[in-house]
Structure formats: C-alpha cells, structure tokens
C-alpha cells in the first residue's frame, strides 16, 4: 500500500486517519497499524461470541461442578466449594452406570444403524437415475424437522394401543408392543427414531464421498473383473475410508449429546430405561436444580466428546489445513 500512496484515490481512502495523510513516515507500523486494527475488527464480534457462548460455559461448568450450586445459590449468591464431591455423587448414584451403559448402547446402535442404511442409500443414489437428485434432496426432510416434531410424530406412531406401527405389525399376527411404556423395549424404540433422524446426514456425507471416487477406477476394475460386491470391497471401501471415519466420529459426537429426542419420547423413562448421561445432566440441573451435579454429568459428556473430537481432528487434519 505505501508504494501506491501517490495515488489520490488511496490517499482519499485514508482521509479518516487524521495523521496518516501528511505524516506518512510517522504512520504507526506493526501490529497496531490502522490496517491491522480494521482487520482485527472483522473477527472481534465472532471471537467475543465464541468466548461468551462456548468458552465461558465450558469454564463455568468446570467451576460449577466443584461447587454446591443449587437454587439457593440464586438467592444467596453463595456456592460453597466442594471439590470433587459432585463427581463422587455422580459416580456413586444408582443411575450413573445404567445411564453410561445406555449412552454407549444408544450411541453404538444409532451409529451402526444410520451408517449401514445411510451407506446403502448413498450407494443406491450414486447410480444416477431420473429424479435421483430430487429424491435425494427430499430425503433430507427428517433431518431438517425440529426434533421435537419428530418425537411427537413417533409418539403417535409408536402408541401401544392405536399407533399405526402396532396396527401394521398386528396384521402379521404380532401382538401389540408397548414401545415407549415398557422398560424392555423403550431404549430400542428411542434408537429406532434417532436412526430415522440421522439417516439423511449419513446419506449426504457418504454420497459426497462416493462422488469423489473417480469413475476410471471402476472402469479399470471392471477390466480386472471387479464388479458388484468385489468392486465395492476393493475400490469403493478403501477410497471411502477417510469420509467413513469422519462420518462415524461426527456421528458419535452428535449422538452422545442427543437430548431432544429422548426427552420428547420418554423423558428418560419408563423406569429410567432411557436415561443417558445427557438426560441425567439436564435433569439434575433443570429438574432437581442441582446445578453442580448436573455440571459434573455434563463434564463427563464433554470428556467423552473430547476424546472423539481429537480423533476427528486427526482424521480430518487435511481438510482443516486446506
């Protein structure tokens, strides 16, 4: 810019900087130069937002989890420091291990279901036929709906006495299943609904991955007799691996924090059959008003996410560096 300062247009663009026009040599250099300050101003709002709405909550949760933070705190302003007491409470509570197990079952089952169906549909749509674009786009709908709408709809479908699913199964002579009211099947029902919600996301990412595999590889493979299943095993799968790992890890990160679906369908019941760590965290904080205990639960959730986030970032490093 300095080399162009004879250009009147440039000079006029600097008119608001009082000293810069005549006193070119006096212009402040380095980090605090006017140019740099303008640049910084572009990122200040976002930086501030990220700090306030992501950074602060994480730190605040860490602190709260070490405090006896309850409704009383809002009146007295006092939150006595209790060290790791909340974590002891969490781990020794009756619901912790079942909730952890449910979280694991829920996450693994959802990921497998979404991934397998997602990959099958993505491969199917990769064939390109009339209307395939339109149909693929419409497939996104379950993912775009508010989750609470999905919960409400599935509550009606899964209703034991008059839900359409049991009526349908009834035509095959299968007796009515108490999907959401029996502790034996409630978790399964919640998993099925969440798989339904997650399929579009998996299809979209995996379809993108399939699109990136060069057609020539298949043509070359065909000459070597690799078609159908063989082509999938030796061409598609190895080339899809990077996308697969991203899909699976993101799937884990998004699935372990699922809350809306479970609250809408079962509220953690019946008989705590669908309690997960996320549900526990919500209920301790906002039902029992034990914010400290709730924070401890959610920190466990963050810890698990963090492990997968690190794996994700390593798997996705190339994409980040670009």
């Amino acid at each position: 810019m300095t080399s162009l300062s004879t250009d009147p247009a440039v000079a006029s663009s600097q008119r608001s900087g009082a000293t810069s026009e005549q006193g070119a040599p006096k212009r402040r250099q380095g980090f605090w130069a006017r140019e740099n300050i303008t640049k910084i101003l572009f990122v200040v709002p976002a930086g501030l937002y990220l700090v306030l709405f992501f950074g602060y909550p994480v730190v605040k949760n860490l602190i709260m989890s070490m405090q006896d933070y309850t409704t009383k705190t809002f009146f007295t302003g006092e939150a006595p420091w209790v060290g790791f007491q909340n974590y002891v409470t969490v781990v020794s509570s009756n619901l912790f291990w079942p909730a952890l197990l449910n979280t694991a079952l829920f996450t693994v089952a959802c990921i497998i279901g979404q991934f397998v169906i997602g990959l099958a549909l993505a491969s199917f749509f990769n064939r390109h036929f009339p209307l395939s674009r339109f149909l693929r786009a419409m497939l996104l709908l379950p993912w775009l709906l508010p989750l609470i709408v999905a919960s409400a709809t599935w509550r009606s479908i899964l209703d034991q006495d008059s839900g359409i699913l049991n009526q349908f199964l009834g035509t095959f002579g299968i007796p009515a299943i108490p999907w959401l009211t029996s502790p034996d099947v409630a978790l399964l029902a919640v998993i099925l609904v969440n798989i339904w919600v997650g399929i579009p996301f998996n299809v979209t990412l995996l379809y993108g991955g399939l699109q990136d595999i060069p057609e020539e590889l298949y043509e070359a493979g065909e000459l070597d007799g690799a078609t159908g299943w063989k082509a999938f095993r030796h061409i598609t799968w190895p080339n899809l691996r990077p996308v697969v790992s991203v899909v699976l890890i993101l799937g884990v990160v998004y699935t372990i924090k699922v809350l809306d679906i479970i609250l809408g369908l079962t509220n953690g019941g019946p008989a705590n059959a669908t309690q997960t760590i996320a549900v526990r965290s919500y209920q301790e904080s906002f039902v029992n008003f034990e914010f400290g205990v709730g924070a401890a639960f959610s920190n466990i959730l963050i810890l698990i996410s963090l492990v997968f986030a690190v794996i994700y970032l390593r798997a996705n490093r190339r994409a980040v560096d670009e």
Binding site: T73, V253, K257, F286, A295, I302
Partner: peptide
C-alpha cells in the same frame, strides 16, 4: 481459530444451557 470453531460445534448444548441459565 478454525480449530476453536470446529470444537465449538461439538460442545453439547446442555453444557451451554447449564452455564447460561446462571448467567
């Protein structure tokens, strides 16, 4: 910055809600 944004996307909403309620 990009790293921070990616991680921010992964923070569970209940963590944010927990802290925001008090604030």
């Amino acid at each position: 910055a990009m790293l921070a944004i990616l991680i921010a996307q992964m923070i569970p909403g209940v963590v944010i809600a927990n802290a925001l309620y008090a604030a």
